[in-house]
Nucleic acid binder design. Structure first.
Lengths: 264, 264
DNA sequence: CGACACATTGAGATTAGTCAAAGCATGTGG
DNA sequence: CCACATGCTTTGACTAATCTCAATGTGTCG
């Protein structure tokens, strides 16, 4: 049975479907690709650092992070991967990964041979567009993080990140209406936000104390998403995700998850 | 006569040629595309912000910057474009640009209709790969900036940026062996580096005082590139640029500029 | 009961920001 | 040639955000 029949494959298929031209033929192309599904333990390696890994890795379940450790020993996480994200999309065009990607939780990962995915993308326009669209969105996210690290305060940055994560998780059906499971430790959050763990702790307390968030045992609750978004200057457009779950009324918004169907 | 015969088109063609599979047919495809060349004045708009600009804009000459102004009025520049860079490559897959791009100097810009470029890229594998390769490199640069803003000091960040700019300029033949023309004001540098202009001033003075750089009248001189790279923790690999001009001996390194030839 | 991983708290140090003024070219009009 | 405006750089004094170091708390697990 194809990897695509796994329940957790829905996250990736949902992401691909966000691309307007992604149709049944494209779905079949990716579905029929030979793929290797594996479980990566917490702290395990999702994408090895350095040259020559000829596979493209997609996180189906769990969280992973691109990580760079500097000479000083400090670490920066320039990208977070949640279910449905392609962890080394750059490897389609650049030899090897600049940084490694590690699992922040136990993860399920599918890997495709680069050349086979490349062939499928060449044959199927919709698949190609969907993958490059994901690459463009990842780039837009990196740009946002750059803006945040350059010009936003610790508090704004934190609020912004939490809003972004909600929207991304919501788009693949991994958020509840009022929040989501946030598996990161404060130290990992610090490495994302360019802060120290101590300061993350104080920042989270500040957000809690004014009621913008609740966070306990790695469960984040956002009482009022609009307020938190205002605090962080968050505008969801860059995620190209539908409305990021902002819609309160009406039927399922376009960005919202739908069950993965493999047929047409 | 085609836009590609302009002397300044060499920067863009050089970049495309860095992609291994880019051949004469691909060159012809891009060369024959209808394109609109224009001059953008200092502070003028290279890519308008917001929805619906159906053109892809390439900087042939001059410097431009993607710019985002926050609610507080502060500005962050998450990307710099030098000759040969595609200023809105994301527009191939996402509707409209998240941010505008402004000219930091008088610029020459070629613009292609998105659909026409898209068609050419669909027909020509080498062109497609070359463009997406550029996109991947832009993404890698954004990642580097994120790391720098998150975990490097003002001084390291500044050194790193100057090294990066040297390598990028060198790759398109826009650097002299010992430095390059740096048209940015200290305020613009501050918006790139996530600092204030005052602090940039002091940081530059610090780098000057230890002899790592000389900078006067917008001409930057780097007496010893290795030292500056060490100061900023700069490693050129992420630019995928050949050796970034590091080579001292031997013939022209692969990343170095060569005259633009239009024929095979 | 440790051992461990993570969260929390306190106190002092440092980096970078803020505000304000002065210096220094360059260009313009008279 | 001067008077003045403009845009950028430089300097000084003070403030604020964030880091550092070190300790304590808390829950889970064997």
């Amino acid at each position: 049975m194809s990897w695509a029949h796994r329940a957790d494959a829905a996250s990736f298929l949902t992401r691909l479907r966000q691309s307007p031209g992604f149709g049944p033929v494209d779905l079949a192309a990716i579905t029929k690709s030979t793929a290797d599904v594996r479980t990566v333990d917490h702290h395990g390696t999702v994408v090895p650092e350095g040259r020559r890994d000829d596979r493209i890795h997609v996180v189906l379940e769990g969280w992973a992070a691109q990580a760079r450790i500097l000479e000083t020993g400090s670490r920066q996480i320039p990208a977070l991967f949640i279910p449905g994200d392609i962890a080394n999309i750059d490897a389609l065009h650049l030899p090897g990964a600049d940084y490694g990607t590690v699992a922040l939780t136990r993860c399920t990962v599918v890997s495709f041979a680069r050349d086979e995915l490349d062939t499928a993308m060449n044959l199927h326009r919709g698949l190609r567009d969907a993958v490059y669209r994901m690459m463009a969105v990842e780039k837009a996210i990196a740009t946002q993080w750059t803006v945040g690290l350059g010009r936003r305060s610790a508090r704004e940055r934190t609020a912004h990140l939490l809003c972004e994560l909600f929207a991304r998780l919501h788009a693949v059906g991994a958020a509840r209406p009022g929040g989501f499971a946030l598996p990161l430790t404060q130290e990992e959050l610090a490495d994302v936000l360019g802060l120290t763990a101590v300061h993350v702790n104080r920042t989270l307390q500040a957000l809690r104390s004014v009621g913008l968030i609740r966070l306990k045992d790695h469960v984040l609750t956002i009482p009022d998403r609009d307020s938190l978004a205002r605090e962080g200057g968050f505008e969801a457009a860059y995620l190209h995700n539908g409305d990021g779950g902002a819609g309160r009324a009406g039927s399922r918004p376009s960005g919202a998850p739908e069950p993965a169907r493999l047929g047409a």
